[in-house]
Design a protein around this nucleic acid. Structure first.
Lengths: 155, 155
DNA sequence: GAAGATTGAAGACTCAATCTTT
DNA sequence: AAAGATTGAGTCTTCAATCTTC
């Protein structure tokens, strides 16, 4: 089956008839803003060679000085174990993490930060801190409490 | 290299010392709230057999009654063309969209909604509308304007 | 049998070629 | 050469087996 153009088709985007304060738009306003912020954060982390997923794994490992089993890592990251298996594959390929056997439980494998991993984590932490500061500066201190309260109600 | 457990390791999460109104937390509060909302939205769409990616493509096709080329679809969705190629593959496999040749430009391929696609789009639209309403109900009308203003400043 | 980790398949995304048509 | 679509590689995620160890 084929298609023959018929008219100009400048698609009327059907403006959603400006309701007084955009009731229905709250959801997409939130999602849109979060998307932009997330993109900036990803870009900042990419500059130091990290993704958000990788950073969060390093963060967990750095936080508790004991090496973690992959299952512990998964539960702290709120994701499934198979995900962590592959994430640790990539982190190991990057030289940021090493797998070590757990002598106490031969089923378990623990992930341990390499020196490079420690260094990279610090760089990522700094990149995030800068983004946080830059973002916080855009919201007036007087508005902060209300903003956080509404966010908490939505999440 | 192996690992031997040494202590209990109940990982002290190091509470971030409650600053008076959480300056640094704004970013993660936003990201966290958006994540929860996104999850609810995904779940609602999944009930009618759609993902957000699929819904947005159907939405674009339904909005402008003319079938769109894959490039037009990509630019409206703000993503790369190869992404749309694969997305349309999946939509076609679902029977929601058909590829048709463009007689005017033999390079181009247009995506057209099937009757099932039109139906599915309406179901998705309804699912989204419900989520929007549920969410909007959680923010007091008096807070709405300020909330949207801050979101706009952050995005 | 249940808990550790892994593998394979799939959705959704990106980027870097590639191939065809303009 | 530039634009349209596609393919292949890679990231990040999930789910459903599978295999080993407890």
């Amino acid at each position: 089956m084929n298609y023959q153009p018929t008219s100009d088709a400048t698609d009327p985007v059907t403006e959603p008839a400006p309701t007084q304060a955009g009731e229905g738009e709250t959801m997409f306003a939130l999602l849109e803003a979060a998307g932009v912020v997330q993109a900036r954060l990803d870009a900042a982390l990419a500059e130091v060679g990290l993704s958000m997923a990788k950073y969060r794994a390093l963060e967990q490992l750095a936080r508790c000085n004991e090496p973690l089993t992959l299952s512990e890592l998964a539960s702290r990251r709120q994701c499934v174990r198979s995900n962590v298996t592959q994430l640790v594959d990539r982190l190991e390929a990057d030289g940021l993490v090493r797998r070590v056997d757990d002598l106490a439980d031969r089923r378990a494998i623990r992930a341990v930060l390499t020196p490079l991993g420690v260094e990279r984590h610090a760089a990522g932490r700094e990149a995030i801190r800068r983004q946080q500061a830059e973002l916080a500066a855009r919201v007036a201190p007087a508005d902060r409490a209300l903003f956080h309260r509404v966010l908490a109600a939505l999440g």
